[in-house]
Design a protein around this nucleic acid. Structure first.
Length: 561
RNA sequence: GCGCCAGUAGCUCAGAUGGAUAGAGCAACGGCCUUCUAAGCCGUAGGUCAUAGGUUCGAGUCCUAUCUGGCGCGCCA
């Protein structure tokens, strides 16, 4: 990245000026293009320690900089003490060539250096079809995973679920009751049982397999048979939902395995050894307040059963011991209460304070015609993920889940999602991509046959072309920042802006045929094809990060008959 | 009662470690179809950044209080 050269040069000059305090030289891209390509406020931050006016420091710095070593065309002092830099023109040319040389790598970085990170998301218990909240989490977790992979991390996607707890037992009792009712028995449905037609479907399937073998049988064995059956069906259903949503996991981690392997027991022993465990009114507590929690937490109830807190710690300790010294948990904001206590428990065991990282997302509401959609027949009390992507498509659904910051509430506007014009950002971006491919088709080329060989990129002098090229070259930074902050919405915003710039460029050619890619002088055409290819690669890679397809052609929807 | 998140244009939302004139899409208004696909493009207008204080060279961003909305609080899972 060109800015690194510039940074090294500034650090050298600072040394020359006798600045001994290590100063972080911060750069930013000015919003106003008149302020150049990059700017630094280092003179202002140095004003105090050096006891000199910021503008004076800036002037001296700007004068001492060796333009060619820094890779810049100009450095000028402005405002209260900013130094604005304009990069030497050839960085655009080099950048575009770089994109064509290795298209699949454009946007990738090495911040992670191949280190492992585990990203846990969805983690729904197998008690029903996935709902829209899980959908947001699936899209978010998958995009965060992909971003981290693009940033050079070795990513492990993991799904954690409880296959033996209270919720599962309620599931079993719900299905059991429906099964009995199917057999004509007078079974009472549990008060807090799972509503929704899918429970009846499972009961019917169970009957188809087992007939009336368990009629009136409420024994543990019967309940077990129902439970195992229901969990198997629902797991398969959830897996199909995720598969069709194009989300894959490397591992499904069962909570029950933590008990089976003795890890829960070992965790409590290790916690005891720290001296932070105490007993109070018959329960076993961990003094989490010693690590920033606002109250101490029960690990083992007076009944002798552990709370969820204990396996949570055991699970994260397990992640750490598997070598994942970085872990990201994508969860609903309703879990925020567990963050402080899990971290506290892990700190007690000597893990670092910020482990694991959490990306919490707020709720999703689905709107149609200005009215909230609350129910689906199959699930009863909620809208399923499948309802959504069956109706509007996987690409649109994923984009809509990703286009907002995760910590703001998300309104899923079905009317907008179904719209196939540029009001719908997904189509806008995909269409810009398809347009580039259309140009290649006209030129008789496949996208990857577009070559920079013999192209004179200095011919890309028009303002829209320069603007577009600059925007393209920002892509790697966008990916890096989004990966670090777990913020895929920055990528959707970037792509939408880029698509706007692409459309401007493309349409400049409609107004003035001299600005087209094809049908102009050979030399020029070759240069512009390079730009078009760079655009196409960037859009494609950006969409890939988000798990969204980049079609080469979008067929116009049939007009209403 | 305590905690977390949010409050930015008519609507939906961006605004990375505090930086220069707060941005985008939609809606509104005015233009543009013998096109490298108008599912589009060009332009105009639109803001006391919830409110009140504070910190400093500088605050949408940090601190305090208040108001509004969402979520959470357990020997629940």
């Amino acid at each position: 990245m060109p800015v690194q050269k510039l940074q090294r040069e500034i650090e050298r000059v600072l040394g020359e000026m006798g600045v001994d305090a290590p100063v972080a030289v911060a750069f930013e891209r000015p919003r106003n293009p008149e302020h150049g390509d990059w700017a630094t406020n280092v003179a202002m931050t140095l004003a105090k320690p050096l006891r000199r006016p910021p503008r004076q420091i800036a002037e001296e710095l700007a004068q001492r900089i060796d333009a060619s070593a820094a890779g810049i065309r100009s450095a000028e002092v402005a405002g209260p003490g900013f130094i604005n830099f304009r990069l030497a023109g050839d960085y655009l040319r080099d950048g575009l060539l770089g994109i064509l040389r290795d298209p699949d790598a454009f946007g990738r970085g090495d911040a992670g250096q191949g280190r492992p990170v585990v990203v846990e998301f969805v983690s729904a218990n197998p008690t029903g079809p996935l709902h829209v909240g899980h959908g947001r989490q699936a899209a978010l977790g998958d995009a965060v995973s992909e971003l981290l992979a693009w940033a050079g991390w070795k990513v492990h996607r993991e799904y954690y679920y409880n296959d033996a707890g209270e919720q599962i037992s309620m599931l079993a009792r719900s299905v059991w009751a429906r099964y009995q009712q199917l057999l004509g028995e007078d079974a009472e449905f549990p008060e807090k049982g799972y509503q929704g037609d899918y429970i009846r479907e499972i009961a019917a399937d169970f009957r188809a397999e087992h007939g009336d073998r368990f009629r009136g049988d409420a024994s543990d064995a019967a309940m077990d048979a129902v439970r195992v059956f229901a969990v198997r069906i629902l797991r398969a259903g959830q897996n199909a939902d995720l598969d069709d949503f194009r989300v894959r996991f490397d591992e499904f981690f069962l909570e029950s395995s933590l008990y089976a392997s003795g890890q829960v027991e070992r965790t409590i022993e290790r916690l005891r050894a720290t001296g932070h465990v105490f007993e109070h009114e018959g329960a076993v507590w961990l003094r989490t307040t010693a690590f920033g929690d606002d109250k101490d937490r029960v690990m083992v109830k007076g009944s002798g059963h552990p709370t969820y807190f204990l396996p949570d710690i055991a699970y994260h300790l397990n992640k750490w011991e598997r070598g994942f010294h970085r872990a990201v948990n994508v969860q609903g904001a309703d879990h925020h209460g567990t963050v402080a206590r899990v971290r506290a428990g892990l700190q007690a065991l000597g893990l670092p304070a910020g482990y694991p990282e959490y990306e919490l997302h707020q709720m999703v509401t689905v709107m149609r015609g200005g009215v909230e959609v609350k129910f689906s027949k199959r699930a009863g009390s909620y809208v399923t993920l499948r309802d959504l992507f069956d109706e509007v498509g996987v690409d649109v659904t994923r984009w809509f889940f990703l286009m907002r910051r995760s910590d703001s509430q998300l309104t899923f506007d079905l009317d907008l999602a179904l719209d196939q014009s540029d009001k719908n950002p997904v189509y806008k971006v995909q269409y810009a991509h398809a347009r580039m491919c259309s140009i290649f088709r006209r030129a008789g080329l496949a996208a990857d046959e577009v070559s920079a060989e013999g192209a004179d990129l200095a011919l890309l002098g028009h303002e829209t072309e320069v603007e577009l090229a600059k925007r393209l070259l920002r892509f790697p930074e966008e990916v890096a920042a989004s990966a670090e902050e777990h913020t895929p919405h920055l990528v959707t915003a970037y792509l939408e802006e880029l698509a706007g710039a692409v459309n401007s460029w493309y349409h400049a050619g409609n107004r003035d045929p001299g600005l087209r890619v094809l049908g102009v002088a050979d030399e020029l055409s070759r240069a512009r094809l390079v730009l078009a290819r760079a655009v196409q690669v960037t859009l494609r890679n950006g969409l890939a990060v988000l798990g969204i397809t980049a079609p080469e052609r979008l067929d116009r929807a049939e007009a209403e008959a």
